[in-house]
């Protein structure tokens, strides 16, 4: 008897699982490789329902660093990339992995740091001066270290400040190889400075003692671009639906959705699809 009960139970579990799997089948979807900032800031949660309602296309977002997102696309595992590191994006295009790059929006980076402000840079407007002060005082600084868009931007900023990072880096400079959120958590825990995109910073809930110390420098500009993965490289790329997503993002409707996304009363991203130089 017991054996029959066991067999029946096992069979019904299998059937239930089978039904669940059948229910998971979805008709139209595209896969977008994007950055942690767009996801962690909540932007996609605001944008995607509108797009899906309009087109019937579900968007699956894989949130990675820019470098990793481009790698995912290079393997043919995504239809669209939506990232923020122009130099890496142009290289991607040059290698014929992307079809065309569309600027979508921008925001900016901010330098955040602890209230104690050991480098004495709070309220500054010049990021080069601030970084120099951090390096001189060997004040703790947490770096993404993950080839993300923010990481590339940070490295460019050290260079722009005329600091030879490999030469001066020491225990104060900590590369953690993780996403923006994890980096902010670490900076909070270690009372360290770090570079963050403004959107993630605003949406970040565990600010603790951290605050913005430097902002508003032109060098802190952060541009986002979107590209369709080249269907000539990967026949599996859903070119039509992917392009529909891109077209929607740069359309007046998509642009105003970006414009209207706010946390509290702060606008996180600024649409600029119409700027051909962005």
């Amino acid at each position: 008897m017991l054996r029959r009960i066991f067999v029946t139970a096992a069979a019904s579990v299998l059937v239930a699982i089978g039904m669940l799997s059948a229910a998971e089948a979805q008709d139209r979807f595209i896969t977008v490789a994007s950055t942690t900032s767009t996801q962690d800031s909540g932007l996609f949660d605001a944008l995607l329902p509108a797009f899906t309602a309009k087109t019937g296309i579900t968007v699956k977002v894989i949130a990675q660093g820019t470098g990793q997102a481009l790698d995912t696309a290079r393997r043919g595992d995504a239809d669209v990339v939506f990232v923020h590191a122009k130099a890496q994006e142009l290289k991607f295009l040059e290698d014929r992995f992307g079809v065309k790059r569309y600027p979508v929006m921008y925001n900016d980076f901010v330098v955040v740091g602890p209230k104690s402000d050991p480098a004495g840079i709070a309220g500054g407007k010049d990021v080069a001066v601030a970084l120099k002060a951090i390096a001189d005082k060997k004040a703790p600084f947490v770096s993404r270290g993950d080839k993300s868009g923010t990481h590339s931007a940070e490295l460019k900023l050290w260079k722009a400040a005329d600091i030879d990072l490999p030469a001066v880096r020491g225990e104060w400079y900590r590369e953690i190889g993780q996403g923006m959120g994890a980096t902010l958590n670490t900076a909070n825990a270690m009372a360290a400075y770090t570079l963050s995109d403004r959107a993630t910073w605003i949406a970040f809930a565990n600010k603790g003692d951290l605050g913005i110390v430097v902002e508003g420098d032109k060098k802190l500009f952060n541009q986002y671009g979107v590209m369709l993965v080249n269907p000539a490289k990967f026949s599996t790329v859903k070119a039509d639906d992917g392009q529909a997503f891109i077209d929607w993002l740069v359309s007046p409707e998509g642009q105003s959705a970006i414009e209207n996304y706010r946390i509290g009363d702060q606008q996180l991203f600024f649409p600029n699809a119409s700027d051909p130089k962005a």
Partner: peptide
């Protein structure tokens, strides 16, 4: 993992 990285501990 995601909520941790969003800082929503």
């Amino acid at each position: 993992a995601l909520e941790t990285s969003k800082g929503d501990l």
